[in-house]
Design a protein around this nucleic acid. Structure first.
Lengths: 116, 116
DNA sequence: GGGGTATATGCCTTGACGAGAATATGAGGC
DNA sequence: GCCTCATATTCTCGTCAAGGCATATACCCC
């Protein structure tokens, strides 16, 4: 019924990343998320639904509230995918810094340790 | 003109992740990617375009070929975003394993000693 | 049981994006 | 100059998901 969405597709949504970040700090009810994110309740619920289906969060019923908490597995998967790429910034840090320098100083800001 | 796409949205696309994985192994021309991924050339070019605009790759012109290579910055950004979440699987590894067990054995397999 | 609160769901519209085919650009060799 | 190979771009079409609104469900307190 539900197309197995990849974890990457799930966290492509900025609001969902915000939700996850809040939940990383502490578990929250829907209403708390709604207030902190300043978004309509139905949106929050729908995003939570997606996150729950994908295993990013789980809910605990507490009276009328649903308290959501983080589940780490899907993010671990993302973390694992990154592994082969990490050598690009753990090994050649210096080469990277050159790149970053080139990037950061778009047009102006000529100071900043220009190693030319 | 181009909506500043988040790095997360870029890697939400499976084909783009495949391209990145191949490039993590070694730099490639468009034709090599086309053959390895078995996808039409126009698709490869279009995905590369997106990846290039987002800074994931850069191209070097070599005769008629364009050789693409990885650029680490955007993936570093993703890696950085994951930081606050890492404590969830570096600290409570045991609690996690319980969760994983519950997940893996979807409907059947009521026994609990599952040590993958 | 009724009213209020908290959350979920269904419908609909709109916009984004990927796939595919066709075409354009550009370089090299004859 | 022309032909061919390698890559990029354009267009159209179909799909799919997000947002907003309205509504449904579930719980609590009186």
């Amino acid at each position: 019924m539900n197309r197995m969405e990849s974890s990457f597709a799930i966290i492509a949504e900025p609001n969902r990343r915000s939700i996850l970040s809040l939940l990383a700090a502490s578990e929250c009810s829907v209403g708390e998320l709604e207030r902190q994110l300043r978004m309509p309740q139905s949106s929050v619920s729908k995003h939570l639904r997606v996150l729950r289906d994908a295993g990013f969060v789980e809910a605990r019923v507490e009276a009328q509230r649903r308290v959501y908490r983080l589940r780490p597995e899907p993010l671990m998967e993302v973390d694992a995918w990154l592994t082969p790429f990490r050598r690009f910034w753990t090994a050649h840090v210096d080469a990277l810094e050159r790149h970053l320098d080139r990037m950061d100083q778009t047009p102006s800001t000529p100071t900043k340790g220009k190693k030319r």
